[in-house]
C-alpha cells in the first residue's frame, strides 16, 4: 500500500464535516440489497435521525441501524442533524431485538454529533434510552458489528457502539464530547477547538490503541467524498469478513468477548 501522509486530527474533523461527505443514505444502495426501511419505536414516534431496516449483505439477511446525517440543509432539518431523540434509540432497540428473534446479525452505523439535548428528549428520558441501549446490546444474542462513518459523538454514538467488532473509517473520529465542548468546559474557551482535537485522542488510530476499535477502514486520498463507491467497497469488505468471522462463533463466546472488551478498558493503579 502507498505510504499515506498522516492527517492531523483537526484536519480529519474538516474532512468529515465536508458537505459532500457520503452519509448512510449514499452507502446503503452500494452495500446492501433488498433493503426495507422499518419505522417507529411503537411507543412515541419515528425518529428520522436513526434509520432502521432489513436487507442483505452478500446475500445474508441483516438488520441495519444507522444514524443519519443530512446531505443538505433540508435533509438535515428533517434528521435533526443526526442527533437522535430517545424514540430513535428505542426504535434501534426494537429492531435489535427483532434481529435477535430471527437470528439476524445487526450492523450499526455511527454518525452523530451526539444525542439531542432538548426539553422533549429529557421528558422522554434520553439518559434512560441510552443506558437501556448499552444494557441490551451488551446481552443481545446475535452478532453486532458497528462502523463509525464520520462523527462518533459521545453517549449518542456509544448507544450504537456496544458490539463484537468496531471499525472506524480512516478519517472518522470518536470522542467523549465534541472538541468544541471539551474546550469550552475545560478551558472555558470554545475557540480552542483545534488544540482540543490534538490532545483528546479521537482518531481511528487512537481508538484502536485505546482498545475501543478493532479495525480501520481505508478512505480514498483526501477523504470518502472523493470516491464514495470505493469507500463503500471498503466498508463492504470489512463487514463481510467480520460477519463471517462472528457467525462461526457461538453466541455465548461472542457475548463473553463483547463484555470483556469493555470490561478491560480503564487505567488505574491499586
Amino acid at each position: 500500500m502507498d505510504e499515506k501522509t498522516i492527517i492531523a486530527p483537526y484536519d480529519r474533523l474538516k474532512i468529515i464535516r465536508n458537505k459532500d461527505r457520503p452519509t448512510i443514505r449514499d452507502y446503503l444502495p452500494l452495500i446492501f440489497t433488498d433493503f426495507y426501511e422499518l419505522h417507529g419505536d411503537r411507543f412515541h414516534g419515528d425518529d428520522k435521525a436513526i434509520l432502521g431496516g432489513i436487507g442483505r449483505l452478500e446475500g445474508i439477511p441483516v438488520t441495519i441501524i444507522a444514524e443519519v446525517k443530512g446531505r443538505d440543509v433540508y435533509e438535515n432539518k428533517e434528521v435533526n442533524f443526526a442527533m437522535p431523540h430517545p424514540e430513535g434509540y428505542r426504535k434501534a432497540l426494537r429492531l435489535a431485538h427483532q434481529a435477535e428473534k430471527f437470528h439476524r446479525p445487526v450492523i450499526c452505523f455511527i454518525d452523530t454529533p451526539g444525542a439531542y439535548c432538548g426539553v422533549g428528549a429529557e421528558k422522554r428520558g434520553q439518559g434512560e434510552a441510552i443506558a437501556r441501549s448499552l444494557y441490551e446490546f451488551m446481552t443481545l444474542r446475535t452478532p453486532v458489528i458497528s462502523v463509525v462513518l464520520g462523527e462518533g459523538g459521545s453517549g449518542g454514538a456509544l448507544a450504537l457502539g456496544v458490539c463484537d467488532e468496531l471499525a472506524m473509517l480512516e478519517n472518522a473520529v470518536y470522542s467523549v464530547i465534541s472538541p468544541r465542548g471539551f474546550a469550552s468546559i475545560l478551558w472555558k474557551d470554545a475557540n480552542r477547538e483545534e488544540e482540543a482535537c490534538n490532545i483528546m485522542k479521537i482518531t481511528a488510530e487512537d481508538a484502536v490503541s485505546l482498545g475501543v476499535a478493532e479495525q480501520i477502514i481505508p478512505e480514498p486520498e483526501g477523504g470518502a467524498h472523493n470516491d464514495p463507491e470505493t469507500t463503500a467497497e471498503n466498508i463492504s469488505e470489512f463487514l463481510s469478513k467480520s460477519l463471517k468471522d462472528k457467525m462461526t462463533k457461538s453466541i455465548d463466546e461472542l457475548l463473553k468477548s463483547r463484555y470483556n472488551k469493555f470490561r478491560k478498558i480503564g487505567e488505574f493503579s491499586e
Binding site: 441510552i130 443506558a131 448499552l134 444494557y135 441490551e136 451488551m138 446481552t139 459521545s154 453517549g155 456509544l158 457502539g161 456496544v162 470518536y174 470522542s175 467523549v176 464530547i177 471539551f182 468546559i185 475545560l186 483528546m200 485522542k201 479521537i202 487512537d206 481508538a207 485505546l210 475501543v212 463484555y259 469493555f262 470490561r263 478498558i265 480503564g266 487505567e267
Partner: peptide, 23 residues
C-alpha cells in the same frame, strides 16, 4: 457525567458499568 480528562476511556465506562448491571 463522564470524566473529560480521560477522553474515550471515560466514555467506555458507560458501556462497562451498564454491561455489569446487565449481567
Amino acid at each position: 457525567g463522564a470524566r473529560m480528562q480521560e477522553g474515550l476511556v471515560s466514555l467506555m465506562q458507560m458501556a462497562k458499568t451498564s454491561g455489569a448491571a446487565a449481567r
